[in-house]
């Protein structure tokens, strides 16, 4: 019923990719690696990146 702007759509797409990676990387590439530098580090970076993307997404609002 309404359409997102192009930059907003790009950020939403990026967030969607990050979310898919949050499943695919730890259960694929990093599977069975018993180290802090594997899934723990990846998911922490994912969390920081997701938060940053969402904050960027809402920073364009004009209250």
């Amino acid at each position: 019923m309404d359409r997102p702007t192009a930059s907003g759509r790009g950020l939403l797409g990026l967030l969607a990719v990050l979310i898919v990676l949050a499943y695919a990387v730890p259960y694929g590439l990093l599977r069975d690696i018993p180290s802090w530098q594997a899934a723990f580090l990846f998911w922490t970076l994912f969390g920081v990146a997701a938060v940053a993307v969402i904050i960027r997404l809402i920073s364009g609002w004009r209250p």
């Binding site: 939403l12 949050a22 499943y23 730890p26 899934a39 993307v53 809402i58």
Partner: peptide, 23 residues
Amino acid sequence: GVGALGFELVYLAGLGLVAIFGP
């Protein structure tokens, strides 16, 4: 183990929905 961290952070990423539905 570490899956608990992934689980909770995927929830946090879901807050992107508030950027869409909140307004």
